[in-house]
Every structure is written in C-alpha cells, then in structure tokens.
Design a protein around this nucleic acid. Structure first.
Lengths: 196, 196, 196, 196
DNA sequence: CTATAACCGAGACGGTACGTCGGGTCTTTTA
DNA sequence: TAAAAGACCCGACGTACCGTCTCGGTTATAG
C-alpha cells in the first residue's frame, strides 16, 4: 500500500466529499449511505475517497467532526456558582439536542459506526465526547473547591451519573426525554455528589 | 404477498437457522453475518429464511432471544434487606456480563440492530431489558416500603441512575468496567435515592 | 469455484445476452464492447454473464456462432465439374463477405479474440473455419478423382494456397479485394495444383 | 493542444519507455501491457508517454520498430539464380521466425494493434512488411527476366501466394509450421508462377 | 551568464469498467 | 406441497487503468 502525499491533496474535493456524506445521511438516513452515492454527489471519483479514508464510516465521522468542530470554544460549562442550576441547564441542552431529529439521526449513525469499528469509537470519544466530558469534570472540580461536591467523589463516575441516565433512555427509547426528566436526573446527581 | 401457514412450519429448520445465526456472530462477528451464510450453515434454502423473518436482524434477535429466553425465572433481584449489598451484587453481575467477550459481542450486535430498526429496538427492550428493569424497580419499591428509598423517588429514573452509568461506560469504552466501579455506582445511587 | 447447473439455465437470458453482444459490436465496434453494456442491453445481471462465460470474448464468439451456426447445410462447395469455375465462385463469395462492412467488423473482432486467447482461437477455427476448409478439401478430392488435381498434392496446403492470399490481403489491407483478384488467385492455384 | 518541441525531447526517457514496453510484453504478454506499467518500469511520468505517443499501441509498435529497425540492410533476398532454392530459404527463415516464441508473441501483439487501429496497421505494413514484400517482388522480377516466371504474372499476387499460406497457418494455428511445409508452399508457388 | 520557458518525475484527479458479494425474488426438483 | 437448492436481477463493493491536470525540479536555449 502506497500512502498518498497529503500536500497534494485537493481541498475542494475533500470538502465536497464531507458535505456530500453529511447531507446524504441527513436526507436518506445512514443505512442508505454508500461510497458511490457520496462520490456521485460530490462530483468525485470513488478512488479519491478510498485514497484518503479507509471506509465510508470514517468519511461520515470526519463529516460530522467537520461540522461539529466548527463550534469549538463554547465548551466550558456555565459556572454561575449555583451548581444545581448549571447542571440542569446542561442536561436540558443535551435533551434538546437528542430531541432534534437531525442530531438524533446523526448520533445514532455515529453510534453504529463506533460499534462496528473500535478505531472509530476511539476517535469519536476522544474528539467529540472527550472535550465535553472534561468540561463537565472541570465544572465539578470547581464545585468541589466550593464545597458543594464531596472532596473524595470520583469525578469520572460523576459525569457518568449525569449523562448515563439520559444516554440510556435515549438509546433504548424507553421513555421521552423531557426537561422535567433532565431536572430529575440533575437533582439525583446533586444528592449523590454533595458533601456529606 | 402470501402469509405462510405457521402450523406447517418446519421446527427443525427454524432451530437450525437460529443456532446458525447465533454461532456465526459468535465466530466471526456481526458484520460478517449474511443471510446466505446462515442458510448455508443451517442447510436451508434462503427462501425459508425470508418466509419467516423480515431481515437478518430479526433472525439474529430471535436467535439471541432463543438462547436468553431459556434462563427465564431467575429474574427477581435478591432481596436480603440490605439494599446496598443487593445493588452491588446486581451491578457486579452486569459488569461481569459485559466483560464476557461473547456477551459483549452479542450485546453490541443487538444494539446495532436496535439502532437500525425501531421495531427491533422495541422488541429487544420489551423482551430482554424490560423484565430486568421491572425486577429492579420491584426491588426498589420494596426498599421504599422499608424506608430506605425516598417515597417520592421516580423509580423509572432510579433504574437509569443504576444502569445508565455502566451502559455509558460500556458503550463508549471510556474506562474499564470493574467490580470497584460497580460498587462506586451503587454507592452514588444509594445516596441519591435514600430518604432525606 | 462452483460450477452452475446448466439444466436450470434461463434460455431467454442466454439469448438476450448473445444478441446484445452481437448488436453492440455491430453498432459501436468491438473495442467498446463491455460486459456491463451487454448486461444492461440484455436486461440481465452481470453475474449471469460471469456465471456462464469466462470472458466477454467468449460471449462474443458464442454470439457470432449463434448467428453463423444457423446457416448450416450449404457448406458443400459447388461441384459443376469445372474446377476453375467452382473455385472462382467460392473465392469471389469470400471476397464479397470480407467487403461487407458488417462481416468485416465481426471477423476482425473474432481475430482479436483468437489472438488473445488460444482457447477461443481453437473454438473459432474448429467451429467456423474448420467445416469450410473441410468442404474445400472435399471439392479438391473430387477434382483429384477427376484427374484435374495432382494425385500427390497435399490438400491441407492446397486450401491455404486458395485462402491464404486473400486472408493475407484482407488482414494487412495491402490492396483492395476484388473479384478480379479472386480470379487471379484461383488461376494461380489451379496451375499449382493441376496434375503434371 | 500544444505540440511539444522535439528538440527538447529527453532521449534517455524515450529509450527507457520503448524498452520498458518491449520487455513488459515479452515478460507478461500484450494483454497486461498498460501505460502505467510502462511509466513505472521506465521510471518516467505518464505524461511523458502521452506527450509523445497517442496510445500504448503506438508506443509498442515504436518499440518493436526500434528493435527491428536495427537490422536494416539485409533486406534483399538471396539471388543465387536458383529461384526454387532461394524461395525455400526465405520461407524456411520466416517459418523459423514464427516458431520463435518471442517473435511469435510480438507478432501477435502487433497484429492486435493493427486490427484495432488502421493507422497503426498502415505504419506496420509500410515500415515492416512493406520493405520485405518489395524485396520479394524484386527477386521475382529478376526471375521474370531470367524467364523462370511468367512475364504477365501479377507479382503483388505472387508474393501473397508465397506468404499467404504461411500467414494463414500461423494466424489460425491450424497446423505446425515446419521446413517441410515451407518447401511445399515454395513448390506450389513455383508451379503457379512459372512460364507456361 | 543569467532567466525563463520547456520538459521531466511524480502522482492526485474525475471517470469507466472490472469481477465479486450479497440482497431479496422466483423457479425447478426432491421428499 | 413445503422446503432444498440455486439461478436470477440488481446495487454496491473495492481495484485497476485511463487520460488529464497540477506540482516542484532540472535542463537548455535566448536575452
């Protein structure tokens, strides 16, 4: 296998491919995404896709990252001093995202890809979830300093306490994701975390 | 489309198909599961599969259910009176299951199917997760009666508080699933749920 | 490689494939003949072609044979007793065939296939040229009996003496193929063959 | 389209391309000859090939000519006064060439090219066959002067009478090309041509 | 004796066709 | 008369080459 020279890469084609992949999933769902369709929509030869990505899943993840990545910066969670309010705000925002059909579709597609390919899973977790989880830990650390969270609380578990329930309900569709539900989860988490 | 007569169904073929599907996933992973491979392995015509199942996903889910379903009965959670001990025992058992490579593979395959097809998702949730979640709620209800859990606690959320973090960590592979971790989750949940 | 069962072969598809191949060459030339085009024109899956033929060349040869083969029966050369007249008639007929653009195209395409694949060459020679050459030898044998051709003349070479010059001129396009030319070749051959 | 300046042409590249093309056919057969393979083997950019040749066929023909062309000069046929002996010698030499696997491969490849492209056919005929045919005609003219060949014999047809049978047998592989066969052909031709 | 244009190696690009795999349907043969 | 066997149409796969098109780098005349 000869590795291509990235310096010579056609930036225009790269962008056309990513946006074609993204749009196709948005329009027809991930199951109908094919490399040929991406190539056709992007006005590109199939080989140009295979030259730079190992699979259609990788293309799709890159496409989502290209869109998501633009939103860099507003990663830090609000820190009003009122931990409960801040957590409720974050969980409600997440619930809103999952309720957006577009984002719902994309997220489930990403999840399928992550399940099929551990490498893609790593990439997704590191580049998308990771920063968000770290921002959440940072907020909790701040709360620890303020004495609102037990000093010895394991913050890795703490974030899972916050996001795990919502993720569970979203994945399994066991019940609707509402703001009220977000508040309940936040309330439970607060109780679990607060200093004795 | 003609609906076949279930009475005339060949039970031997049915079983051969289900066990072929199950074994193929166990051996080569879900991605390589094909209807043709199932038919060949089961010594069955493809049409016999399409006659009774709408998709390979449905076959696979049925196959898992056929295996899982045999374990009926021991669904009730232990109730020693010590809620903390009981929850730790349950979460440790779940962690063990996720750490079993065979079950891990099957669970991820099921998850992909559920993501691809809402109908299959419903079936999985109702027939596999449902009874388990209900058993957990039942144990928590018992704890409520014993005054160990707040009377007004939303038990639907409570079970997500228990299983959500573990599910989150398993799905995203963010960190290993250990007994210690199970204990930590149980501990947090207990604090969140206990009566003020 | 599993060999398919000829008994189950779809006769309609077979015919559609052969006539599609033939027509495509007649319309656009052999260089533009592709398996995909044959499949599309015949309303057939590519696999159905690959199942029964090893290459597009084999399909094409079969197609020509299907057309040519129908003309069975009039293989015997005329035998008026006048060998010279009979040979002139045959060579003129051959010259006419080579001058028909349709047949010219087909013949050159066949020749390319024969050059690329010795197996196809054998098939062409045996099924198309062979009977014709044998018929010619038979006419010459008759002439030997009549004392018009030397008894010890090698008839295998004799037919090459008749057809070789025309074939040479046709293949290399060194000069036009006319009836006059056919007569000249026949005249030379007669002189070469006649009993001393 | 801009025509490049031949003065600036890299002679080293030209030679590398021709010999790469020749060697590749000798090693793997004409069917596997590709422009990319030639470029790679010659250590040359593809564009350098397309700049100077219109097709891979043209490259190959040039390659053969470059090799063949070196043998210039010995084109004249032997003229010992014994026409029969001279013709037998020439036909035997031709038979030997066709029996050399290397030359056989090259000749068939050239023939395919000639069939595919009339322009190449012309070039081959004029530059390779032409001089040889003319030399043969010249020898026959000499024989006419010596009264060994009929004065009114059409010499264009005469050379075809000599080479046509061999060409026919070589192309169709109907029988082996032996010296004995060459002698037989020469004998027939002599009889056909001699003055009455 | 530069400089500026050309050719050159390299190889990415938009395409076409390849030969294969598998999906889901339809037909023929066997028990 | 259902089921096995498997041929069929179809769509997509990932690969091989096509012929075109930049990219620097290197000659090699023309100023």
């Amino acid at each position: 296998m000869k590795t291509p020279n990235p310096a010579r890469r056609n930036e225009q084609s790269r962008r056309a491919i990513l946006s074609a992949a993204f749009d196709l999933v948005a329009e027809s769902g991930y199951a109908k995404l094919t490399v040929e369709a991406i190539a056709a929509r992007a006005g590109v030869g199939k080989q140009t896709i295979y030259r730079w990505w190992p699979s259609k899943g990788a293309v799709f993840v890159d496409a989502v990252l290209a869109v998501t990545g633009d939103e860099k910066g507003h990663l830090a969670l609000p820190d009003t001093g009122d931990l409960g309010a801040d957590l409720r705000a974050v969980l409600r925002a997440i619930v809103d995202e999952y309720n957006d059909p577009r984002l719902d579709t994309m997220s489930r597609a990403m999840t399928i890809e992550a399940l099929n390919d551990p490498g893609i899973n790593t990439e997704i977790v590191e580049r998308i979830m990771g920063p968000h989880l770290e921002a959440t830990r940072e907020r909790l650390r701040s709360a620890q300093r303020a004495g609102q969270v037990a000093e010895d609380a394991d913050l890795d578990v703490a974030v899972e306490l916050l996001y795990g329930p919502i993720y569970h309900r979203w994945m399994l569709r066991t019940a609707p994701l509402t703001h009220e539900y977000a508040d309940t989860v936040a309330e439970f988490a607060l109780r679990a975390l607060r200093a004795a």
